[in-house]
Amino acid sequence: MPSKNQSILLGGLVVGLLSTSYLGLINMLCCAGVLIGAVVAVWHYTSTYELTIPAGEGATIGALAALIGGLISLVLNFVLMKIGIRHDLVISQFMLERFGEGMPPEQYEQIREQMSQPVTLGSYLKQAWYGAVLIVTAIFGAIGGVLGAVLFKKGGEAPEGAAM
Results as ranks from 00 to 15, higher is better:
44 H>S: 13
107 Q>E: 14
75 V>Q: 07
26 I>F: 09
116 S>W: 07
147 L>T: 05
70 G>Q: 02
128 A>T: 10
9 L>D: 02
30 C>W: 12
138 A>G: 08
60 T>H: 11
31 C>Y: 15
37 G>A: 01
38 A>P: 00
56 G>M: 08
39 V>E: 07
120 T>L: 03
7 S>N: 05
151 L>A: 10
63 A>Q: 04
81 M>N: 11
109 E>I: 00
5 N>I: 15
18 L>E: 00
157 E>G: 10
134 L>K: 03
111 I>M: 09
6 Q>K: 15
45 Y>C: 11
101 E>I: 04
38 A>F: 09
97 E>R: 14
98 R>I: 15
100 G>N: 04
90 V>I: 14
69 G>S: 02
119 V>G: 06
10 L>W: 09
103 M>P: 04
58 G>N: 01
62 G>N: 07
81 M>V: 04
123 S>M: 09
102 G>N: 14
128 A>G: 12
41 A>S: 04
5 N>V: 14
119 V>H: 07
98 R>K: 15
116 S>Q: 12
87 H>A: 12
163 A>Y: 10
62 G>H: 05
30 C>I: 14
28 M>F: 14
124 Y>F: 12
26 I>V: 10
142 A>I: 00
161 G>C: 08
76 L>I: 03
147 L>N: 06
101 E>G: 14
139 I>T: 08
39 V>K: 04
120 T>R: 07
23 L>Y: 03
106 E>I: 03
58 G>I: 02
72 I>W: 02
151 L>G: 06
110 Q>P: 07
1 M>D: 13
107 Q>H: 11
26 I>C: 03
47 S>H: 13
34 V>I: 11
